[in-house]
Every structure is written in structure tokens, then in C-alpha cells.
Design a protein around this nucleic acid. Structure first.
Lengths: 250, 250
DNA sequence: ATAAGTTTAATTGTATCCAAAACACCTCTA
DNA sequence: TAGAGGTGTTTTGGATACAATTAAACTTAT
């Protein structure tokens, strides 16, 4: 697995609020990364026994981690049927990007007012690493850093609650991308990200908000044009399609 | 406990995403209500045994509920020290209201564009019940309905994700109010809520956003002027104060 | 051979059990 | 008398055991 030296993303606070004593924190991060970086495809079942063996702990700990991921909407749990990697519906995917527009645009005034040179340098560094990853074709790292950039940008506002919300939205965006988008189109193209740093550095609130709105709409557009159910509503529809084919053939 | 016929508030989806099989869902709601309506003061310890006996289940189920409430930031859990009702710091309280301004103002355009007469009638009904509760001095119901109004308003946007976020923020606002505010000032005064319905019905996006921003700043102002730590940082400070008193006295 | 019904296996939900940590009380000492 | 140290109790963290539910395999009858 990619050894990640700087966890810019990953669930808000690492001193996690529940009784995570380090071990299940590790398990959580492993699963989180596996899901968000699309090592586990949406819909993949996550049996408690398997995970328990994998990490050498009892199901108890696994269930705790699974519950956390469920709360973050990265896994779905149905009664007596266990957990699986979440498959955002088209509607959910839209909601996620809509919510991102609300939060990321709405936080821009705070960000601009609190943007220090040091903070902007941190952003620039992320962009540098993002373009580097992009040039060497490491799309996984590229997507990761793209998300990390958005989180870090809002992080400048200094509002932990908002940052947590956005972190969750960015993770879920990755899931939506994995479910509907083509991998290469997914990461924000040509490091547009540099542009917004300039705009923010110039103190142009209105411009930054417009940039962000357009940027997020661009990303969404490359992703959700699949329009209809991913693999669900299968049987009936498939059978009907088959029926039509056969009538055509004869 | 108040028999509540219409659960407008309460954690996003009632068909909860985790394995809640009805029984622990009930436990969750009871605890949720007890915390949000301030039957349990912030800081109150929540021992697992006690809760288990109270609800006639094993600690296992209690821990699940407690974890959920922890994720929603309504309880704090410290390693090996158990759970207690969360005490938002002043900084957190500010962040909560700041986040509410971002989300509730940012969602206004969506709300206005999707506002149907039926939806507005639903809002009016909530206001009616809120003023009724206020007039009969039922401040608990009044606060509840005030929060429910804000959630229902954003709910018109039809974005479940945003609604979930706001639901959490409103619950945490109640905790902040319980921690810092005086009860009667807490509920939004004189049913201002009616005003925004009119503005929205008129299609005035800009006006509605300004109203919401001012409204939330008003609510925040009546609450967080305590400025400094609630009861924390006790020992040292208290001892120092006592020391000063004694030097004055002699 | 297919479809329904029944039995078997696998997986989750819940309770109980044990170990470790925190807390309270009590004693002993300076 | 105040403080340090130690013992016992309470409470939490985690694993295991058992019950309940679902999914799968197999049988049987049409």
C-alpha cells in the first residue's frame, strides 16, 4: 500500500473522539484508504470475520470501525446483511457536489480573510506535489492530493466543524467518482488549483467564490453524466432489454 | 418525557444507516432527546452499566448507541474514562454557528428555487406551533420547534446531505445553548421566523440570505458572550482566585 | 428438467466473561 | 495534620460464546 507520509486527508481529527486506542485507529485508516483510493470497489462486501482475521482482532473492534465508516457514509450496513462499500446513487452524488459548492463557496470569505502567506505556501506545496504525481501518471496520488488541496483550502478558515464536513464530502466524492467517472478525467485537470491561490492572495472574495463554483461544476460534470443507476435495478431491466433484442432478431 | 408526535428533528434518516433494529434506535432517540433538550446537563457522566440497566439491554447495545452519539459530537468519550454529555468549548460553539451561517445562507438559493406553496405551509405550521409553545411558556418545546424550523427550511432544498449536516449542527447548538446561554433568551425571539417565510415566498434570494445571516448572528450573540471557559481549567484558577481573596481580606 | 420446499451452512446480533485501567478509600509516615 | 503509598472496588476495553437471521445447497415432486 502507498506509504503516505503526510495524512492531509483522513477523518478530521486523528486524536479521534471515540475510544480509539491506536490499534483500531490503524484499522480505520487502512479501510478508509482502501475505500477512498478505490482499492475496494463500491459494493464490495466487508464480512466481519474476514476483516477480524485480516487485522488479527476480534469482531468487536471491527464493528466499531465499520460503524464509524457507516456514519461517514463510506459503507452501507443493512440489518442482518452486513457491511459493504457504499455505492452512492446518482442523486446522492449530485447532493454531495451541491453540498460541496455550498460549503466551499460559502467558506471562501473566511478563507480569504484568514489567508496568511504561510498558509498559501502550504497550498502551493500541495499543488506542486499534485502536478508532480499527475506528470508521473500516479493518478491515485493525484486524486488524493486534489482532495487534500480542497480540504486544506477550507482548513484555512480555521473552522474544525466545516473542515470535518468537507473531509467527509471529499471522501464521498471519491466514491462517487469511483462509481460513475472514468479515472483519468476524475482528478481536477491541468492543476487549475494554482489559479485560485492567486485569486485568494489578491483578496478577491467574489472572484474566488466564482472560481470555486465553476471548478466544482466542472468536476461534477466529468463525473455524473452516467445519469442512470449503476448496477442496480438489474434483473427486470436486463430481462426486458434481452426480450427486446430477441424480438428484433427474429 | 414529552410525547412527541412529529419528530421533525432527530438524526437525519430514521431508517438509520447502521444496524439499528428498532430497539437501539429507541434507546438512541431517548438519549438524543435527553441531551438535546437539556434533561442531561453538559458534562454529565453516562456509565454504561447504568444505561444498560435503565433500558434493560446489555452494555454492548449501549456502547453502540454511545458511539453513534460520539460521532455526532453530542457525547465525549475519553479512553478508559467512559462517556459524558459533550461540553462544547467556546471555540467550538463559535465554529458551530459559523458553520450554520455558511450552510443555511448558502442553501437559500436552492431553497427559494424549490419552495412550493405546500412546503411553505409546512413551515408556517411549525412557526404556529412554536409561538403557541412560547406563549404557554413551554420553552423546551419552543427550542425544539425553533430548531425543527431551521432544519425544515433547509430541507426544502431537497439535499439530504446538507440536511443531515444541519441537523447535527442544530443539535450541537442546543448543547452550546445549554452550556453558555440563559434558557429564555435561547429560543429565537418573537417568532422572527415568520418574516423569512414571507421573504422566501417573494422569491427574494438576497434578502433571505441577509435575513438568515443576521438571524443566526442574533442567536449566537445571545448565547456565547460568556467568552471564557465554562467550568474547565478549574483547580488552578479557583485556587488562585481564593488566594487573591485571602490576601485582600487580611 | 424445473420449481418449490426443506435442510444445512455461513454471517450477523446480542449477551456474557475476563483482563486492564481508573478511582476511592484506607493506612502509614513524616 | 497533610501527604504518599498501597489495597480493594468500580468501570471500561476487548474477546468469546450463544442465539437468530439470512443465504446457499440439496432434495423432491410435478
Amino acid at each position: 500500500m502507498g506509504k503516505r507520509t503526510s495524512p492531509e486527508l483522513e477523518s478530521g481529527r486523528n486524536d479521534n473522539g471515540l475510544g480509539g486506542n491506536g490499534r483500531d485507529e490503524t484499522i480505520y485508516r487502512n479501510l478508509f484508504t482502501a475505500i477512498v483510493e478505490n482499492h475496494l470497489a463500491p459494493g464490495t462486501k466487508l464480512p466481519e470475520d474476514t476483516l477480524a482475521e485480516t487485522y488479527g482482532v476480534s469482531r468487536t473492534s471491527i464493528r466499531k470501525v465499520l460503524q464509524r465508516l457507516t456514519h461517514e457514509r463510506l459503507v452501507d450496513v443493512r440489518l442482518n446483511r452486513g457491511a459493504s462499500v457504499a455505492q452512492p446513487s446518482v442523486g446522492e452524488a449530485r447532493d454531495i457536489f451541491s453540498a460541496r459548492r455550498v460549503i466551499e463557496c460559502g467558506a471562501i470569505p473566511l478563507v480569504v480573510s484568514k489567508a496568511t502567506p504561510a498558509a498559501l505556501d502550504g497550498l502551493r506545496d500541495l499543488v506542486r506535489r499534485e502536478t508532480a504525481a499527475q506528470e508521473r501518471g500516479d493518478w491515485r496520488e493525484s486524486i488524493y492530493l486534489s482532495g487534500a488541496f480542497h480540504v486544506a483550502l477550507i482548513g484555512i478558515a480555521g473552522n474544525e466543524t466545516l473542515t470535518d464536513f468537507l473531509t467527509q464530502l471529499v471522501s464521498r466524492s471519491s466514491l462517487a467518482i469511483a462509481t460513475y467517472g472514468s479515472p483519468q478525467t476524475a482528478s481536477c485537470r491541468h492543476s487549475e488549483h494554482d489559479d485560485v491561490i492567486t485569486i485568494i492572495a489578491g483578496g478577491d472574495v467574489e472572484g474566488a467564490m466564482q472560481w470555486m463554483d465553476r471548478h466544482l461544476r466542472d468536476v461534477e460534470r466529468t463525473v455524473v453524466f452516467a445519469e442512470e443507476e449503476p448496477a442496480a435495478a438489474d434483473l427486470k431491466k436486463i430481462l426486458e432489454e434481452v426480450a427486446q433484442r430477441r424480438t428484433k432478431l427474429r
